[in-house]
């Protein structure tokens, strides 16, 4: 029996996922320990986004198990999904902000769904907005934001409930290098506070700058896993 500290926070075993006949992930094994910062790289179509979708149970694998903190999430019931997702902070390439809500409300929404009292919400939201450098933009609507700002709102929303795991799927995909660097800095800060971070990206510069564990995927399988890796264009 492994003690709690040594148990992987994310673990996949023999995962297989197909979309209308095409195999995206095949016999996919991979582990992340608590507190790690892992960058997932690979060309488009390698299965990075599919893996992310499996980790938040947006999709179910055909075979194998996906364990988060020791629990196989492929077996979760529909009503249990919100609880899983409240423990994971997710950042999307297309931000996925609610268009009818202001910056403040988008961030507060993640806490409202957890039934946190208003006092706690008004304490936490300004803090996290400050952390992503968005103080003063609270009342803006998503369509009034720049790409970098929108992505930082998305990060703020993912962070505000202090998740154990933080997953970012191509967060810099639509951003210029300066904005990308800013996002990377925020992710490093998050990791320093003890949160496990999984970053899926194909931004070569970003990967080379960060010097973190790099897992390279190709055609649905892990082809390399380096401790302080660089972007590998194999």
């Amino acid at each position: 029996m492994l003690d709690k500290e040594k148990q992987p926070i994310i673990e996949t075993e023999g995962v297989e996922k197909k979309y209308s006949g095409t195999t995206i992930l095949e016999d996919f094994d991979f582990k992340i320990m608590p507190g790690e910062f892992v960058i997932l790289v690979g060309p488009s179509g390698a299965g990075k986004s599919t893996l992310v979708r499996l980790l938040i149970r947006e999709e179910k694998p055909e075979k194998g198990s996906v364990r988060i903190a020791g629990r196989d999430i492929t077996r979760l019931k529909q009503y249990e999904l919100p609880f899983l997702r409240r423990n994971i902070g997710i950042v999307f390439q297309d931000y996925k902000l609610l268009p009818n809500k202001t910056v403040w409300e988008n961030v507060a929404f993640a806490l409202e769904v957890c039934d946190l009292p208003d006092s706690e919400i008004s304490r936490r939201v300004p803090k996290v907005l400050q952390a992503v450098n968005l103080t003063g933009r609270e009342n803006a609507y998503p369509n009034q934001l720049s790409g970098g700002e929108a992505q930082r709102v998305c990060i703020a929303r993912a962070l505000v409930h202090a998740p154990k795991i933080f997953i970012a799927d191509e967060p810099t995909g639509n951003l210029d290098p300066a904005a990308s660097r800013e996002i990377a800095d925020i992710l490093e800060k998050i990791n320093c506070q003890g949160t496990t971070v999984l970053l899926a990206t194909h931004d070569k510069e970003l990967v080379d700058q960060m010097r973190k564990r790099v897992v390279t995927m190709k055609k649905g399988q892990v082809v390399s896993d380096q401790k302080q890796g660089r972007y590998n264009s194999c």
């Binding site: 938040i56 947006e58 529909q78 009503y79 999904l81 919100p82 609880f83 899983l84 997702r85 409240r86 997710i90 999307f92 996925k96 902000l97 609610l98 268009p99 009818n100 929404f109 993640a110 409202e112 769904v113 957890c114 929303r157 409930h161």
Partner: peptide, 16 residues
């Protein structure tokens, strides 16, 4: 429908 999807991904329960 996008809004509904986002709410679910952020962890909103069905009633919410």
């Amino acid at each position: 429908s996008r809004e509904i999807e986002i709410m679910r991904l952020v962890g909103a329960s069905e009633s919410f």
